[in-house]
Write a protein that binds this DNA or RNA. Structure first.
Lengths: 199, 199
DNA sequence: AAGATTTACCTAACGATGTTAGCAAAGGTA
DNA sequence: TACCTTTGCTAACATCGTTAGGTAAATCTT
C-alpha cells in the first residue's frame, strides 16, 4: 500500500518546506528576526507542527548551515573539475569562496557564526572542513616538489583560509570604513598572490 | 552646594556599575545569557532604573564594546612607546592584538560581532579603526623608502588585519579542528613573517 | 460498516525576554 | 506646611522558544 509512502513523502515535504521558508524569511529580514512563529505562519500551520519535524530552533539553523556547506562544496567540486593545474585551481577556490560568501551572506553568517547567537559552530561537522580540504589539496599540488613537511602545509592552509575569512568577515560586518567592493576584491587578489608567491 | 555634585557622582557610579556588572556577567555566562533583569538583579535595583542610564540593551553593549576598543588602543600605544623600530613595532602590534583577543574574548566577540546578535558593528566608530591606524603607521615606517603608493599601503593594512582577524575568529569560533593554541600562535607568527617579507 | 487506535493538528499556556506606563515615596524648595 | 522634582518600584505589554493536553480526522482492526 502506497499510503505509508505518501505519508513519508508528505512528512519530507513539510520538512523541506520549513527549511525553505525559514531561509526565505532570513533572506528578507535577517537572522535576528527569524522566529518559529513566523515560520509557522509562512507554512500555514500552527507552531507545534514545526516541533514534529525539528527538535528546536537550533536544529533548523543547523540544518540550514549544512545546506550552506553542501552548496559551497558543490561549487568547489566544480572548480576541481574545471582546473587541473594546482595554482589555477587554488585561485579559483579562493574566488569561489569569496563569491559564495557575498552571494549568500545568510549562509556564510550562519556557517561561521557572524553576528548571530552562535548556533552552528561548536559541533564538529565534516562539512566544516570542506573548504580546508579543497585548498589543502591544491596547495599540496603546488608545493609537492618542495620538501615541505605536512605540518608546514597545514600551517599554509590555515593561513590562506584566515586571510579569506578575515577579509570577508570584516567586509560583511562593516568593521572597515572601506566599503568599495571592487577594492576589497583587489585586496583579496593581492593577498592570494602574495600567499602563492610565498609558498 | 555639593549636593548636586553628589547626585551626579551617584548617577555616574550607577552607570559604571551597570557596565561593570554586565561585563562580569558576560565573563561568567557568555553574551547569550546576558539579560537586563540579571543586570538589575546584580546591581540590586529594579529593572527600569537601567533604562534611566541607557536607552536600551544595545546601548549597554555598545558602551562595552567601546571599552574594549579603548583597552586595545591603550595596549597598542604601549607598544608604540616601547618599540621605535617599525618592523619590531609591527610584530609587537600583531602579538598584542592576538593576546588581547584571547585574554578578553568577551570584548573581542562583542567588538567584531562574533557569535552574537550583531549589536555593535554597523555604526561607524572612530575607535573601530584604532588597530588599523596603528599597524598602518608601522607599515608605512617599514615601507617608506620603497615607492609604494598610498593605495598599496592601504591594501597591505587590510591584508594583515584580515589574517589576524580571520585566524582569531576561526580559533575563537572553533571552526577548525585544530585546537592547539601553540600551533595556532605559530600559524600567526609565520603569517606575520610572510607578510613582512612580502612588503 | 462499526469500533478502536493511531495520527495530525490546534489552542492555550509557561517561563523568559526587552521595554514602558504609571504610581508611590523621598528629598529639596518655597 | 505645601509643592515639585527626583528616584525607584510594581505591573504590565508584546514577543520569544517550547510544551502539555485536547480534538477531530484518518487509519487500522474486526
Amino acid at each position: 500500500m502506497g499510503i505509508l509512502e505518501r505519508k513519508i513523502r508528505q512528512k519530507e515535504n513539510m520538512r523541506t518546506n520549513i527549511l525553505a521558508v525559514a531561509l526565505q524569511l532570513v533572506k528578507e529580514e535577517g537572522w535576528q528576526s527569524l522566529s518559529i512563529r513566523k515560520i509557522a505562519d509562512a507554512i500555514e500551520y500552527s507552531v507545534p507542527v514545526i516541533y514534529d519535524h525539528f527538535e528546536n530552533k537550533e536544529a533548523i539553523l543547523f540544518e540550514l548551515s549544512m545546506d550552506g556547506f553542501r552548496l559551497l562544496d558543490r561549487l568547489l567540486e566544480k572548480d576541481k573539475r574545471k582546473y587541473a593545474e594546482p595554482e589555477e585551481r587554488l585561485r579559483a577556490h579562493a574566488e569561489t569562496y569569496w563569491n559564495f560568501a557575498f552571494k549568500n551572506p545568510e549562509y556564510y553568517q550562519l556557517m561561521y557564526g557572524l553576528g548571530m547567537p552562535c548556533s552552528s559552530p561548536g559541533k564538529a561537522k565534516p562539512e566544516f572542513n570542506s573548504f580546508r580540504d579543497h585548498i589543502g589539496e591544491a596547495i599540496e599540488g603546488i608545493v609537492k616538489e618542495k620538501k615541505n613537511s605536512e605540518e608546514e602545509t597545514c600551517f599554509k592552509i590555515h593561513a590562506l583560509w584566515s586571510v579569506l575569512h578575515g577579509l570577508i568577515s570584516i567586509v560583511m560586518m562593516r568593521c572597515s570604513d572601506i566599503d568599495d567592493s571592487q577594492m576589497n576584491k583587489k585586496v583579496m587578489d593581492e593577498s592570494v598572490d602574495a600567499f602563492i608567491k610565498n609558498l
